[in-house]
Simulated assay, not measured.
Amino acid sequence: MPSSVIHTYVYFPQTEILRITYQSGAVYDYLELPEDVFERFRTVQSKGRFLNYVIKKKFSCCKIK
């Protein structure tokens, strides 16, 4: 399902980084994100809500672009 917030995302299991490209064009890496959390994110209907209420509250991030 398309997201009004997230344009694309990719997960790097070897480094536990979730890279999210927002609709605005901003790119953030969410660090030390376990694969099971990514799998939950991948399957939820509202990725934006999951991002705000689970990922942003528990995992640090860095702006890439």
Rank of each mutant, 00 (worst) to 15 (best):
Y30N: 02
K58I: 02
R19M: 15
H7C: 05
I64C: 12
F59Y: 15
Q23W: 02
V44M: 00
Y11V: 00
Q14D: 15
K57A: 04
L31C: 13
K65A: 14
Y9A: 05
R42L: 00
G25H: 01
T21F: 07
Q45E: 15
E35R: 07
L31I: 09
E35Q: 13
T21M: 11
G48H: 00
K57C: 09
R40Y: 01
T8D: 10
F38T: 05
I17A: 08
T15D: 06
V5H: 06
K57E: 07
K56G: 09
P34N: 08
T43Q: 09
S46A: 07
G48Y: 00
E35L: 05
D29K: 04
C61D: 07
Q23G: 06
V44W: 02
C62E: 15
V54P: 06
G48C: 02
C62V: 15
Y30V: 04
N52K: 13
P13A: 03
I55V: 12
F38C: 09
S24K: 02
Y53R: 15
T15G: 05
K65I: 13
Y11D: 07
C62F: 11
Y22M: 06
F12N: 11
E35A: 10
C61Q: 10
F50I: 00
A26G: 04
I64Y: 10
A26R: 03
E35P: 07
K56R: 14
K58L: 08
L31G: 09
T8K: 13
M1C: 10
R40N: 03
Y11R: 02
I64H: 11
L51T: 01
S24I: 03
I55N: 01
Q14I: 12
Y11A: 02
Y53N: 15
Q23Y: 03
S4E: 05
K47S: 05
I55D: 02
P34F: 10
F12R: 11
I55P: 02
Y53M: 14
V44I: 12
V5N: 02
S60K: 13
L51G: 00
K47R: 15
R42M: 00
I17E: 11
F41A: 06
S60W: 06
E16V: 13
T15C: 08
D36T: 14
V44T: 10
H7N: 13
E16T: 14
Y9G: 01
E32F: 11
I6A: 11
R19G: 10
G25L: 05
I20D: 00
K56D: 09
L31Q: 11
Y22L: 05
Y30F: 09
K58H: 12
Y53P: 01
K63P: 03
E32M: 12
F50G: 01
D29M: 03
H7K: 08
I6F: 01
M1N: 08
S60R: 12
Q23R: 13
M1Q: 05
I17N: 06
V54A: 04
P2T: 13
F12V: 08
I17W: 09
R40F: 02
I20H: 01
